[in-house]
Nucleic acid binder design. Structure first.
Lengths: 197, 197
DNA sequence: TGGCCTTGTCATCAGGCGTTGACAAGCGTC
DNA sequence: GACGCTTGTCAACGCCTGATGACAAGGCCA
């Protein structure tokens, strides 16, 4: 989103990194199909051809973006006791759209990117692979114990579904504050129940 | 998917209907962006230009498809007591892909189409409008009682999330039969709990 | 049978996409 | 200061998309 009129110093690593971050923002806000190489290039202030040269193809860029995200595992940062509340708060109240580096909502970013491109045929392979290796499997392992795979699926389903529901209803804008609080509480309880067994 | 080598009898209504059904199958299996007018036309055995003439634009066709689906409300067909079990069974065991008319999985079709195109910027307006008027609002009304909007969001989230999780993990193929049963049971209980209060 | 409205086809358009290879400009090194 | 590698730009390609308007052919009615 930041255009530089003063020419960027010639630095391959920095440019590559800038492309990666711009792409991450784009994939965070739009689906795989809707993100264009030219869009990303414009954000960085660079020619689209450069992206092809640095990353190979659009799909490779997408993979690189996914790899650069602190996927899944971050959801499990913090104590086990308030997992439900943390997640619920993040989804109901957190701002997932701005997508700034290391900031609020950053934890959800990898997941958000997956959800955005979930429908795209072209990205499906990557999405499936990534969601398994970066989301389902770590969550299953983290939950542990009896019936962990099943409980992880349920938790993941609830998390994804609520995140999508939020997108669909524009940040749960039709709910008032009390209702949002109630939603967060219900979600927290449901998630925590799945974690605790 | 059915190609007719013998020329279709000239019948505007029938052709229009055939286009609508072919489009419904396509939108059921692919995202808005991935479905091409030429694909739909080929399925029907007709020229793509005809679709434009009958339906106006691709977006209009998408709207017509959504209108033609028995959305949302169908999820609430049947008794209130086994809502959770019905839905859970549909999602965990039902085949949502074949997408045949009036057959198993048909109830989920409208929802499936929404989920498929959830990431597309071009379809977002229609998706948001439809998911509200055909899914969230009826569900809220059907649940009724105290806190209905919140409980409806939770239920919708769980349904959508589990449906997506299913797509992501290829029909929960990594789970064995016992685990699938456990998943269905957990989901049924969670949903029913939301319905009952 | 001849006319005419309806139904469907065909060629084509403008625009967008990802990608490519040839060229320009910066910058360190000898 | 000139060479040469790196970094970035530019123009173009081939392909695909949704949409349009001119045209062919079926089918009904007089």
């Amino acid at each position: 989103m930041v255009l530089c009129d003063v020419p960027r110093p010639r630095n391959a690593n920095a440019t590559r990194q800038a492309i990666l971050e711009a792409a991450r923002e784009r994939f965070c806000a739009e689906s795989y199909d809707d993100v264009g190489m030219r869009d990303v290039a414009r954000d960085v202030g660079v020619d689209a051809a450069l992206i092809s040269r640095y990353f190979g193809s659009k799909e490779d860029l997408f993979v690189a973006v996914m790899d650069s995200c602190k996927n899944g595992r971050d959801l499990m940062d913090g104590s086990r006791e308030d997992f439900g509340e943390r997640l619920a708060r993040e989804i109901v109240y957190g701002d997932m759209t701005p997508c700034e580096y290391e900031d609020g909502g950053a934890k959800m970013r990898g997941l958000l990117i997956l959800l955005r491109s979930i429908g795209s045929t072209k990205a499906m392979d990557v999405v499936q692979r990534t969601s398994n290796s970066r989301f389902f499997e770590p969550l299953t392992q983290w939950i542990g114990g009896e019936d962990a795979p099943v409980r992880a699926r349920m938790a993941a389903g609830l998390i994804m579904g609520m995140a999508i529901g939020r997108e669909l209803s524009d940040g749960y804008s039709s709910l008032d504050e009390a209702q949002k609080a109630s939603l967060a509480q219900r979600m927290a309880r449901a998630l925590q129940g799945l974690i605790d067994g």
